[in-house]
């Protein structure tokens, strides 16, 4: 995404009771910005965000529902998280609940910077897994190719059988190695 919001969210005027906030992910914010502020079509907006058109529509749908929920129920809106790529590696610690970055990439990281626990995980793992789910596969020989967001699988050709590829849910480990 190009433009993260430069503020953290919205709160309703004149409500004293604290309700749980609605959390809008950055990609949902971006979807609303592209569609309703810059007036891009779903196809164009999906290409800008680097996701497929159906994925974009799903993100946009979810964003609109969240906005409506906040409006109707008078809830606070908080912009947070989502599948965002960072410039440096970020880790989360399951022991103390903090987030920390790791600058020296050549050194392996094993402990939480704050509490020293080894119970840590890398943030980007999750989004990479989700990304790897999308795969184009050859119906004849099983050749697999990573699916390009926004490009239909049928425009890709199998280099062995020269036939159209079809969409596949999750890649097999052998298929990934072939690439």
């Amino acid at each position: 995404m190009n433009n993260p919001p430069h503020f953290k969210g919205f709160s309703p005027i004149g409500l004293s009771e604290e309700k749980l906030p609605v959390i809008i992910n950055f990609e949902e914010y971006e979807a609303i910005r592209l569609s309703d502020f810059e007036f891009h079509g779903h196809v164009g907006a999906a290409q800008i965000m680097g996701v497929s058109r159906p994925t974009y529509t799903r993100i946009y749908e979810s964003a609109r529902r969240k906005v409506a929920e906040a409006f109707v129920q008078g809830r606070t809106i908080v912009f947070e998280g989502g599948k965002v790529y960072f410039d440096s590696e970020w880790y989360s610690c399951n022991s103390c609940g903090c987030w920390f970055n790791h600058i020296e990439k050549d050194q392996k990281i094993e402990n939480c910077t704050l509490c020293g626990s080894t119970y840590i995980e890398q943030y980007s793992d999750d989004s990479q897994k989700l990304f790897a789910k999308d795969c184009c596969v050859c119906p004849e020989c099983g050749y697999e190719k990573l699916h390009l967001p926004g490009a239909p699988c049928k425009i890709e050709f199998c280099p062995n059988c020269n036939c159209h590829l079809v969409h596949k849910g999750a890649p097999t480990s052998e298929g990934m190695e072939k690439q």
Binding site: F100, T113, L114
Partner: peptide, 27 residues
């Protein structure tokens, strides 16, 4: 911070006391 090679730790817990964080650091 990145250019100065200073490590960042984000703690999303505004109730945490400074003494508790210092304790965590003394692991």
């Amino acid at each position: 911070f990145d250019s100065l090679k200073i490590k960042l730790v984000i703690l999303k817990d505004p109730e945490k006391r400074i003494s508790a964080i210092i304790e965590l650091l003394n692991h």
